[in-house]
Design a protein around this nucleic acid. Structure first.
Lengths: 213, 213
DNA sequence: TTGACAAAAAATGTATACATTTTAAATTAG
DNA sequence: CTAATTTAAAATGTATACATTTTTTGTCAA
C-alpha cells in the first residue's frame, strides 16, 4: 500500500505525464480507489498539490488538472527573470569552490546520461540552478524560486520541444560556471538572463503554435 | 463549535497577537482540546498555516511558532522591492478610474477610523496596495505578493512602532494615487520604492533594537 | 552515578463510520 | 414538453477508533 509521499510523487508525475488529462476533475474517492489508499491520504496530497499549482479548485466537487497557456508560461518566465538573477548576484559573494564543484559534477552527470527521461533531465537542471542560488542565504527567496520551478516543470512534461534546446542549455550552464569561477558576477548575471529568456521564448512559442492548432 | 475557516482565522490571529509565544510547540491534541474541535480540523489548519509561514515544522511532534529576526524582515523587504514595483508598473497600463476610486475609498475609510486595531489597519493597508496591483493581470505574481504580505503581517502584530509611521504612510498612499491618476507611472514607481524601503527600515531597526536588548 | 535498554505514555498517521453538503435525476404540475 | 420542486445519489467534511511512530520515563546492570 502506498504511503503519503509515494502517492504525492506518483500523482504529481502522472499529472505531468498527462495520464490525467488537463481539465480532468479528480475526486477523492476516484483517486483513493485508483491508487488503493484511504481518502484521508488523498485529501492531504490533493491539498499539497493544490498549493503548488498541480491542481486547481473546481467548484465544490473534486479538483481539476490545470491546462497550459502561453500567457501563463510568459508570466512564469517574467518572474524567473525578476528573481533568479537577484539570487545569483547575492549568492555569488558567498559561493564556495566546493559548491562550484558540486555544480560541475551535476553537469557532467547530465552530459553523461544522454537518455534521461525529460522530467528527470528537467529536475537535474533545476538542481543545478538551485545550487548556484543556494548561497544567497535568503530562505524566502529560495522558497519562491522552488515554487516557480514547480510551476515551470509542470509545463516541461511536454518537453519534446526542449530536447532540441538541451545542447545549447548545457553549453550555457558550463559557461555560467566558468564565469562564476572567474568571479565575473556581472557577465554571469547577463548570461543567466539570456538563458532564462531563451528557454522561456522557446516554451512560449511552442505553446502558441499549439494553441493555434 | 468552530468551523475550519473560523479556527484558521482564530489561530492565525492568536499567533499574531502572541497569545502563543514564539517558540511554543503546538500539538494537534493540545489545539484540538483548547479550541474544542476535532484533531482532523486542526491538522488541516496547521498544514495551511505551515505553508503560509505562520507555523514551522518541529521534528516529528507538533509545529512551532516561528520567531522574529531582523534578517528575515530585511529579506521580505527586499522581495517586496523586487516584485511590487513591477506589479505596479504592469498594472498602471490597465488601471481603471473605478479602481482608483475604490482605492481612494479605502484610504478615506482608514483615515476616518483613527482607532483601528493594528492588525486591521495592516490588513486594510495591504488591501490598498493589492488594489493598485490587481490590474497587472498576472495571477502568479499576485499570489507571490499575497504570500509575502502574510509573512510581513506576521511581523506587524507588534506594530506599536508602526503607529508612528501611520501618518507618513497615509500621506504617501494619497500621493501614490495622485501620481497614478495623472498617469505618471515613473514617479509612482519611485515613490513606491521609497515607501516600501521606509517601512522596511523602520521594522528592521525596531527588531535590531529589540534583539540587542 | 551513569549508561543502556525496556516499557509505557503521548503524539501523529490512517482507516472506518457518520453527517452534511452538493449534484444529478426524476417526477410532477403547468 | 418545459420548468420547477422534490428525491435519491454522490462527494466532501468531520468525528471516532485503531495503528504506528516517537518520546519519555523508569529500571537494571556495570
Amino acid at each position: 500500500m502506498l504511503k503519503k509521499h509515494q502517492l504525492y510523487n506518483e500523482l504529481k508525475q502522472d499529472i505531468q505525464l498527462q495520464c490525467w488529462a488537463a481539465g480532468s476533475v479528480l475526486t477523492q474517492q476516484q483517486l483513493a480507489e485508483y491508487y488503493g489508499v484511504s481518502r484521508i491520504v488523498v485529501r492531504d496530497v490533493q491539498q499539497a498539490l493544490l498549493s503548488e499549482g498541480w491542481l486547481e479548485p473546481h467548484g465544490k466537487a473534486g479538483m481539476q488538472v490545470p491546462g497550459f497557456s502561453a500567457t501563463e508560461a510568459q508570466e512564469l518566465c517574467l518572474l524567473r527573470l525578476q528573481l533568479e538573477p537577484l539570487a545569483l548576484q547575492l549568492a555569488a559573494a558567498n559561493m564556495s569552490f566546493s559548491q562550484l564543484g558540486q555544480a560541475e559534477d551535476l553537469l557532467a552527470y547530465i552530459a553523461a546520461n544522454k537518455s534521461l527521461a525529460p522530467y528527470q533531465r528537467g529536475e537535474l537542471n533545476w538542481q543545478f540552478h538551485r545550487l548556484l542560488y543556494q548561497s544567497c542565504a535568503k530562505p524566502h527567496l529560495l522558497r519562491l524560486l522552488d515554487q516557480l520551478h514547480q510551476q515551470v516543470s509542470r509545463y516541461l512534461g511536454y518537453q519534446e520541444q526542449a530536447l532540441a534546446y538541451a545542447d545549447t542549455s548545457a553549453a550555457e550552464h558550463a559557461e555560467l560556471l566558468t564565469l562564476l569561477r572567474r568571479g565575473d558576477t556581472e557577465q554571469a548575471g547577463k548570461l543567466l538572463v539570456r538563458h532564462i529568456t531563451e528557454a522561456g521564448n522557446l516554451l512560449v512559442q511552442f505553446l502558441q503554435k499549439q494553441q493555434g492548432a
